[in-house]
Structure formats: structure tokens, C-alpha cells
Simulated scan of single mutants.
Amino acid sequence: MTLNLLKAWQGAKKRLEAAGVSSPVIDARLLVEAAAEATRMDIVTDPYRALTPDHEATLEDYIARRERREPVSHILGRKGFWKIMLGVTRDVLTPRPDTETVVEFALRDFPEHAPWRILDLGIGSGAILLALLAERPAAKGLGVDVSEEALAVARDNAASLGLANRVALLRGDWTAGLEDASFDLVVSNPPYIATHVIETLEPEVRDHEPRLALEGGADGLDHYRILAPEILRVLKPGGRFAVEIGYDQKDAVEALFKAAGAVLVQTVRDLGDRDRVVVGEKKPLETAG
């Protein structure tokens, strides 16, 4: 019997539900759209459109991989973030809506044509930095990552978005080798999951995301201990920072940045009303009265 868009979606949804996937409705739709070269509107307006044998074979492969809990972003090789589409591989974290909180805050009080210099520490796919540059045409950015594979993904994404001429990429260990007081804005989504917690995570994360981008040491705070003073060092006076945190790390990370000399330190909550991003500033230079 010929499979149509509606039956394909219904069948995929049922299989993903049985596999314990947390978002079977959305995932089934995305996989059917990609496999059948269809759009969401096609499923609504032309639900009985038949899939070709090639489409059916592709969909079967996609669904089988998702049943094994491979992330949709890895199956399709892409993921939407903020207002951009990013290429994604196993070498980078899949961009998540929670991280858009970093972008949202960073854009506040960031004049559209300000020639700011932005530093993204642990750039991964490039999600945060590229989303910011897409919104602020006069800004330029530097992305640092210890993974050459991640930098390759970020480089490809910058090129596909037409932003390569405003992005520099550096393989390095956080801020090592960077000059003092050289950036207007520093953003980061560092590894912050405690080592003992990683094995309890969903299979999509535990088995498919790079461990290097997840593990934050015994208490999840190892990287913040390094980053807090270093971010303050490379920020210009009056410069701002925004770093993503785990839901229960607000007090500890705020304290680290305050101890490093940051001012106006606070935590921004995400759309799920969870503590998500610690923000603040480097104290401005004193001016003569």
C-alpha cells in the first residue's frame, strides 16, 4: 500500500512514542518533511500526497535512527537557533532554545550599528556568536574552542550565513593568549554538568553529544572557576558578559564573578522560568568629577 504524508506522519509518531522519545509529534513531522522533501504546509494542505519508494526508504532510515535515540539534529544535519539555521554534527552540542536566553540578553542595550568586538568562549557550532552577528551588522567576533572539529563546524556555518568576513576562529584553551581589555562583550556556554550526572542524562545527550562539551567536573563548576577572572580580564571597562549555567548553579556562579570583580551581577531566567544565564559587567573606568 502506498504511503502518503498523513499516514507517514502518523506511523512515525506511533513508533517514536513506543521508543520513548520525548517529542514524538514534532520529531515525526520533521523527519517526514525531510525524507519526503515536503513542508509543514504540504502535510496540512496535501496530506494524501504519496511518497516515492526513495522517500519511504529514507524515512525508514530516519525513523530507525531516531528510535535508537539519535538526535533529529544529527539525523538531518541541521538545527534552527534564534533566527538562523545551523549545520550540526556529533562534534558539537545541538543548539537548544534555552541558550537563546544568552542571545536575548546580549542584544539588550547593544546598539544596532555599534562596532563591538564579541568573544565567544567554547563556540561549538557557532550558535551564540553567529546569531549575534546576524543581528548586529557592525559587530565582529572571535570564537575560541579547544576542538578543531567544532571549529570546522563553526567555520562552515559562518560561511553559509554570509558572516565569514566578520568572524575569526581560534583553537585554544579559553582565553589563553588573548590581550587584556580587548572585548566589549563575552558570551559562553561552557560545560557545566557534574561528572556523576552525565550517565543519568537522556540517551540523546549521554550517547550522542560530545563529552568534552558537557562535563564540568565533580560539581559542574570547574570551568567557571577559570572563566570568571579571565572573562573580567579580557573585557573592556564597562564591557558585559553572559554565561549559561545549570538550573541549580546560580548562587555559586554569581559568587565566582563577584569575587573576580564583576558588577551588576544577576541571573536571567529562561522561558521555562529556570535560572539560565549569569550576566554582569566589568567596572567602568573612573571619570574625573
Rank of each mutant, 00 (worst) to 15 (best):
M1C: 03
K7H: 13
G11F: 04
G11N: 15
A12S: 15
L16W: 12
L16R: 05
E17G: 00
A19M: 13
R29A: 09
L31S: 03
V32H: 02
A34N: 15
A34E: 15
T39Y: 13
V44A: 14
V44I: 15
T45V: 13
T45G: 12
D46C: 11
T52I: 03
H55Q: 14
A57P: 05
A57F: 08
E60Y: 00
A64S: 11
R68C: 08
P71Q: 14
V72C: 08
S73K: 02
I75Y: 09
G77S: 13
R78Q: 08
K79D: 08
K79L: 02
G80P: 03
W82Q: 09
L86S: 09
R90A: 13
D91W: 11
D91F: 06
D91H: 15
A106P: 01
L107V: 01
R108A: 04
P115L: 09
W116A: 14
I118M: 06
S125L: 03
P137S: 13
A138S: 10
G141Y: 05
L142E: 09
V144W: 08
S147D: 13
A154C: 14
N157L: 02
A158R: 10
A159F: 06
L163V: 05
L170Y: 02
R171L: 01
D173N: 15
A176E: 03
A176K: 06
A181W: 00
F183P: 08
D184T: 03
V186G: 09
V187W: 04
P190G: 06
T195F: 01
H196R: 09
I198D: 00
E202G: 01
P203F: 06
R206I: 00
D207Y: 07
H208I: 06
E209V: 07
P210N: 04
R211E: 06
L214E: 06
E215F: 05
G216D: 12
G216R: 04
G217D: 05
A218D: 11
D219R: 05
A228C: 11
E230R: 14
E230K: 14
E230Y: 07
I231H: 10
V234K: 14
L235E: 08
G239P: 00
A242Q: 02
G246K: 01
D248C: 02
K250D: 12
D251V: 08
V253S: 07
A255D: 10
F257L: 00
F257D: 06
A259L: 11
A262R: 12
A262I: 10
A262L: 04
L264I: 01
V265A: 04
Q266K: 11
D275M: 07
V278P: 12
V278Y: 06
T287Q: 08
